[in-house]
Design a protein around this nucleic acid. Structure first.
Length: 285
DNA sequence: AAACAGGCCTAAA
DNA sequence: TTTAGGCCTGTT
């Protein structure tokens, strides 16, 4: 557990020593869809533990001194799940220092330095990013909520788990979630994962390009979605998803022949800084 | 009311 | 190999 210090502070659990962390940047940079800000400004939601597929609930925020604060969970869960999920043991400053100095990534990384790349469950990431295509965030969240409420399981704490691939593969129809033309894509993903034609846990151990190619065998999964799943679900921090926002960034700040893979081993982290900066901090033109 | 939203598929050059 | 439409649905 490296240099992390875990303490009980009143009814909350505090994790110190993780370096810069921002709950709002992490949960609002578009990488996940099941965490929402509550009336106390905490981000609460359920995260799936792969491969057991069990759901963990927590409320996550920053303490006044910038450390990580949890409530609604336990010391054990923080130690055994949340620290890993939030990637708190990784040295992000070191990652940023690997980028070759160009001013724009410098500004973006500094401004968005509180972002952590969540280690999401690959199956949940796969479904979520299939749903995200040609769609907007409020509706993405709504569809995913409906998916969990209709096909997930209700936990003791009253929250819903993300449905298992088998459940979706066997479901008569997914029409209730109103995912439109994406339904057949979700179905195809569920079937391939359920009968082991695609083994997500195995993809984690393959070379990135190969894992991505496997994902793209699924209907409705192309270049962008496969790289999102690779980055957010499989732990390939070198994956660099290019969507309309990133296209805009590349046009504005980089030469036409610029190759994002030149960001290196941690290109995906750079992508997230660039993406979030463009959406939330950049002035329009 | 028409356009648009964090892509992908298919058909056609 | 690249390019144009079309796609479910909800919101503005």
């Amino acid at each position: 557990m490296n240099n992390l210090i875990i303490t009980q502070v009143e009814e909350k659990i505090k994790v110190s020593g993780a370096g810069v962390f921002s709950a709002s940047q992490t949960f609002e940079c578009g990488q996940c869809f099941r965490f929402d800000k509550n009336e106390n400004g905490e981000y609460e939601g359920v995260a799936t533990d792969s491969p057991s597929a069990s759901g963990h609930f927590a409320r996550i925020s920053n303490s006044d001194d910038g450390e990580v604060l949890f409530s609604g969970t336990t010391m054990d869960e923080v130690k055994n799940f949340w620290i890993s999920f939030l990637d708190l043991e990784r040295d992000y400053e070191k990652i940023v220092s690997t980028y070759s100095e160009d001013s724009h990534i410098g500004v973006a990384a500094r401004t968005c330095s509180g972002i952590r790349i969540l280690k999401q469950d690959p199956w949940e990431a796969l479904c979520s990013f299939i749903i995200s295509q040609n769609n907007n965030i409020p509706r993405i969240k709504k569809i995913i909520r409906s998916l969990c409420e209709n096909f997930g399981e209700k936990t003791k704490s009253g929250h819903f788990t993300f449905p298992d691939a088998r459940v979706l593969a066997e479901a008569e129809s997914l029409a209730v979630i109103r995912s439109g033309f994406r339904e057949k894509y979700i179905k195809d993903a569920a079937q391939k994962v359920a009968d082991g034609e695609i083994k997500l846990e195995v993809l984690k151990m393959m070379p990135y390009e190969q894992a991505k190619a496997e994902l793209m065998r699924i209907k409705g999964v192309g270049e962008k979605i496969s790289s999102c799943v690779s980055l957010f679900g499989l732990g390939f921090l070198g994956a660099f998803p290019v969507d309309v926002w990133i296209k805009r960034v590349l046009e504005k700040h980089y030469d036409a022949d610029f190759d994002p893979s030149s960001f290196g081993e941690y290109a995906g982290v750079a992508q997230q800084y660039l993406f979030h900066y463009e959406r939330c901090y950049a002035s329009d033109e």
